[in-house]
Design a protein around this nucleic acid. Structure first.
Lengths: 337, 337
DNA sequence: AGCGTTCACGTGAACGTTCACGTGAACGCT
DNA sequence: AGCGTTCACGTGAACGTTCACGTGAACGCT
């Protein structure tokens, strides 16, 4: 029933197109014709070839095929953590955009470690035609391993002309968020920033500018670990230092969701006693109660844009300029603010 | 600065190892040695080759390389919807298990449509060495396109000997869940089943058996669309028909989370006035409030098991039998019941 | 001085397909 | 009957690497 390769000790010597040809009493080319549904082959011969191929357990080599007809495009998608809902959405969007072009996507989850990221970089160039993704290591290291390949970075500014990157522009969105809170009468607005990186986040800069423009104190900021628990803990810290805060913006939705949960635990009703506005606009925000108000970005557009740019870089025609590689995040009102 | 391939009209004629060799004044083999960090090459020569390769924008063909050294394994992971948290976790687990073996994973999101699933089946065999995933189309159709490849199905019983499948065994877990509810004094327990398929789900059968064994009415079941909104709507329906219900089991966590949200909306406190127990044990359950009690399965083990079986099928040694391809789901208590 | 060994290369073959082209037999038309 | 065309194949070459092996020069030892 099962092929002979399942017998221990028998190494599964590859069965090639020649074996099928010999078995069916035809030439390689005829086998190729039968398998690829080409013309110029007799019906009975075709069936005989197909039977022989099945009997031998024949499978064409994707390498040999790829070598001669250079038509399949495969891109590598590198993300730090597929379980992080933001990257889940980005990955889903990239997969969708790639599929609509008939491309294949190899996904690498670097487990948020520099070590795995380096490991991925080392093997990726021999597996794909282009790379889309998020890297935390220095640019020149990425450059070293992706030489000659199109690379599109996501959500990270790049410095060298070697890369493209999709920029997330939340400046107006954050301004709108602060304006919305002010209009609702909030005068003490804090922020739960991301504390993972060395420099302050650009999202915090947007918050600072917006708060300042309304004459508010922009200094009520604490860093949060990028998780729901981190968001809860950060809110606790923030409220200890600044008990009069009535609204918070957060670095992203995960942190905001943790803040929502913490607010319920300490008995602050949302949005009446504490307004919460996240960033990213994840689908996850619709599942929690109250639904999360967020400075939302269109992750599908983000993925589509990245793939579009890869396509242009691969063909070499009219790659998009930095100004066109922007996804704008806009305030989307829901229950939490 | 950028290669000449970016000039419109210039088709990017592939630069091969020969071009580099000629440019550096050496042979192909020496180029190969330089690029692959092999011995038997002089330091200066190596540098000269590397410089030439960079200047020409040379990138080795993965097809040619793969053809001659048959060492890379690539598997295809097929899932209906990456944004469904269950499949997100399965995908993450499979990626992790594959990475630890140095395998590459091509991910196909079939968008929950038969059409995309068929499209994926048609192309997948020429791209990967084995397939792991979830298919909704008939087995013989899967068989047709995956001829000769190892195939491991997830969360679906298979009928032919041609496939392996990972079975999810929640019988004991569901029994424990019902026993837990009974111990807490619940006498009217309903279920929110999945209504997507023709046949009743096996999870419902487990519920029926468990409820019956405790002398309870096992008939209070309604189907729910597989989404949070679906779960909310189904709970509403169920409580209309059976207002005296004090606890519900659900087909999965997504539905349970919708039920939690609906309970809050109609003013039933959880778990005091309505106990909710989900199925799957997703990480998502820890984010909602109260945290979700669930008949939890170990998705990492699920992914690891699938990859392990693929490895055994590929080498042909000791494939696991059906009895070993089981992931048991166990009751995990949290706040909602 | 003689000879084995190492170094730093190069050359032909092979991996398993598809493409371009060639070819004999059968067919159809005048 | 003669000849062009179609049908159903087959054959050599090519895709771009790496592997196995070959080779001349330099080196080191007695």
């Amino acid at each position: 029933m099962v092929s002979s390769s399942s017998v221990p000790g028998t190494e599964p010597r590859k069965v090639t197109i020649h074996d099928v040809a010999r078995s069916a009493g035809v030439s390689r080319q005829t086998v190729s014709r039968a398998l690829n549904d080409k013309d110029e082959i007799d019906g009975t011969t075709k069936q005989r070839v197909l039977d022989a191929a099945r009997a031998l357990g024949y499978r064409p080599s994707r390498f040999a095929r790829g070598l001669v007809r250079q038509d399949t495009t495969t891109i590598g998608l590198v993300i730090p953590d597929l379980l992080n809902p933001f990257f889940t959405e980005v990955a889903a969007a990239a997969l969708e955009a790639a599929r609509s072009r008939g491309w294949h996507v190899v996904v690498y989850d670097t487990a948020d470690t520099a070590e795995e990221e380096r490991g991925t970089l080392q093997v990726i160039s021999s597996q794909v035609d282009a790379v889309v993704g998020y890297f935390s290591c220095p640019e020149d290291e990425v450059e070293l391993f992706t030489r000659g390949m199109p690379v599109v970075l996501i959500g990270r500014e790049h410095r060298t002309a070697r890369f493209s990157s999709i920029r997330i522009d939340g400046e107006d969105g954050v301004h709108a968020a602060v304006a919305h809170l002010v209009a609702r009468g909030h005068a003490q607005i804090g922020m739960l920033d991301h504390d993972g990186r060395a420099e302050p986040s650009i999202r915090r800069e947007w918050f600072t500018a917006a708060a300042t423009s309304h004459g508010l104190d922009a200094g009520m900021v604490v860093g949060a670990d990028q998780s729901a628990d981190g968001g809860g803990a950060a809110l606790r810290t923030l409220l200890t230092t600044h008990p009069d805060i009535t609204a918070v913006l957060t670095f992203n939705d995960i942190i905001a969701i943790g803040a929502l949960r913490e607010a319920r635990r300490i008995g602050r009703s949302v949005p009446e006693e504490l307004a919460v506005i996240g960033f990213d606009g994840l689908q996850l925000g619709a599942v929690v109660e109250p639904p999360l108000t967020s400075v939302a970005l269109d992750t599908r557009k983000l993925g589509a844009l990245a793939i579009e740019q890869v396509a242009r870089l691969l063909t070499g025609v009219n790659p998009l300029a930095a100004d066109d590689l922007v996804v704008r995040a806009e305030l989307r009102l829901a229950g939490s603010a």
